[in-house]
């Protein structure tokens, strides 16, 4: 009475087939990541050392370390964050907590989504026109960071808005009905409960910003500049551009060198992501509703 029919058997075979297909696709997805990481570690690992991190490149960038590029990337990312986080968080707060649901708000939301889709090279050209030439910042950290900031603003806004929206509406209702203003509600209830998500978004943005090449190559990153920048008006080397340069533009670079640079860059990004995930888990575990 309960034995399998032919139809059951057939369904079971089909089921196995689909399951296998999805599994293969998932594995295919992981393969490139594993391959990239192992090649980088295998080929770039040997050049890594404390000296590599903390000395400047020598002999036409065919030897030496990456210190100016490392410091330059930190500068670029920091200045970009100082510009994009306040603007992005404020914009997200307006859109999520104040903006009425009308055509203007919807148009702004649409614009943000589209801004996220603009190719980075277009941002680069905009950066040259706006910051380097029009505002006369010249090719400088300031111009490059502002270009990066504009490029990453949509990410900050979307991440922030999503964390704000994740705070249950009932909390806002409760506050408003006790006579709290929007700002009191934001400061006392909404922000404390969304700060984990906002910070996660910011950290993810850092990792994205650190790897960008196109937006900075015309606006402030230098080909070769073995000095540390002294202010935001200086040019600087950057990890991403340095990698591009020694991989394609300079003859006679030992094979291991670009891999070493790439390994440092990817480690920075992965470390940032790991911090972001750990942070999110920590804050989530404290949240209860």
């Amino acid at each position: 009475m309960f034995e399998a029919s032919d139809l059951n058997e057939r369904n079971r075979r089909v089921e196995r087939l689909w399951r296998l297909l999805f599994l293969v696709m998932t594995v295919l997805l992981i393969v490139p990541v594993v391959v990239i990481l192992s090649v980088l570690i295998h080929k770039g690992g040997p050049v890594l050392s404390i000296d590599f991190l903390f000395t400047e490149p020598v002999q036409g960038m065919t030897a030496g370390g990456i210190f100016p590029a490392l410091v330059g990337t930190v500068w670029l990312v920091t200045v970009a964050l100082l510009a994009s986080v306040p603007i992005g968080v404020a914009a997200a707060l307006y859109l999520s907590e104040y903006a009425p649901d009308n055509w203007l708000t919807r148009a702004i939301n649409l614009a943000i989504i589209n801004l996220a889709g603009v190719p980075s090279i277009v941002h680069a050209l905009f950066g040259v026109g706006a910051f380097v030439l029009f505002f006369r910042f010249g090719t400088s950290i300031l111009a490059a960071s502002l270009t990066l900031a504009i490029m990453t603003l949509p990410v900050v806004i979307v991440a922030t808005r999503e964390s704000l929206q994740a705070v249950p509406q009932a909390f806002r209702e409760a506050c408003w009905n006790m006579g709290a203003t929007r700002w009191q509600t934001i400061r006392r209830v909404v922000l404390p409960n969304s700060i984990s998500g906002i910070l996660t978004g910011v950290i993810l943005e850092v990792s994205r910003t650190a790897g960008e090449t196109a937006p900075i190559m015309f606006t402030g990153a230098a080909f070769f500049l073995p000095f540390l920048p002294q202010s935001v008006y200086d040019q600087t080397m950057a990890m991403s551009l340095h990698l591009f340069v020694i991989s394609t533009q300079v003859p006679g670079v030992p094979e291991a060198l670009p891999f070493g640079v790439a390994l440092v860059l990817i480690s920075m990004v992965l470390a940032m992501n790991a911090i972001s995930i750990a942070f999110r888990m920590h804050l989530r575990s404290k949240k209860k509703w």
């Binding site: 909390f171 209702e173 409760a174 408003w176 009905n177 006790m178 006579g179 709290a180 006392r188 209860k288």
Partner: peptide
Amino acid sequence: RKRIGMVFQRPNPLPLSIRDNVVFGYRV
């Protein structure tokens, strides 16, 4: 809103301590 309080169908305490919930409105 201060003089006319409202209680809802679904209890909606704020994600704060019991103490902070009670004095929330007073602080505001």
